[in-house]
Design a protein around this nucleic acid. Sequence first.
DNA 1: GTGTATGCAAACTGTTTGCATGGAC
DNA 2: GTCCATGCAAACAGTTTGCATACAC
Lengths: 145, 145
Amino acid sequence: MHESGVEGAYGSGRMSRQRLLIARVAASMPGAFTIDALCSAVRENDGSTGVATVYRAVAVLLTEGWLERVGERDGHALLARCPVGPRHHHHVVCDECGRVEATECPVVEAPGHATSASFVITRHEVTLYGLCPQCAAEASAEGVR
Amino acid sequence: MHESGVEGAYGSGRMSRQRLLIARVAASMPGAFTIDALCSAVRENDGSTGVATVYRAVAVLLTEGWLERVGERDGHALLARCPVGPRHHHHVVCDECGRVEATECPVVEAPGHATSASFVITRHEVTLYGLCPQCAAEASAEGVR
DNA sequence: GTGTATGCAAACTGTTTGCATGGAC
DNA sequence: GTCCATGCAAACAGTTTGCATACAC
């Protein structure tokens, strides 16, 4: 594997053992994750890594665009390594397993849209939630049981 | 004025001086507001009202559906009294003054949507941000100046 | 060698909870 | 009269910061 592009993750910042670990763990997450899930996973791998380091690293990864905020759950931000890059897109989050995929923008920029017609829309946030193929299959199996 | 429907705001809960004040202040907010903006506004009106009371009241107002989470700014939830009611809808938030309006759902439920096709979408969150008519007018006036 | 990243712990912010008291119904 | 809502302060969770040390470059 090509290390998932971990090398440039911190931009011009220095690469340390901890930062490498944090980026690797983040990249290996199956889907969206909260910061403290990341903390746990990192510390499980190396208990000597402090939480502050994880927070600082994540802040850098976010400003570098290597990680993204893709939504939220129970008031906690959901992060994910998004392969799409800076192109305009949104995310689908699996409510069951947290898997995240990029999706095309489902928003109609209809100019005559009812109440919003008088607003000048500059940006929008969209997150779709549901079940990924695997979880959907399991759920329907449960239902039949 | 008809008190903006403050009477039923807390459902079957009891109405107190503080709760009445909190609901009135919330209803008088020009647009979306954060909890601590509400706290400040309430305490400005009656310094003896504790923050805990505001938080507890807001929790009730949210579960009653009298208030709604309409988005977020700097990691803080934006709340607003939404006149639309429980019908499916979304919000347009003015980045400048915080004014909020309801808008029709701009999401296309296209069944064949690229990557999300394999996901079973159960819900979505959409918030539009931009400038309300007034702020847009002011902004363009600034630009011309 | 220089300067950034780290670990630790303390500080800090926003929110919730326990408990005795006051007030709504 | 009963029970809910309040105020206060303490507890709490999540996050950030200060500082001395370790390490990348």
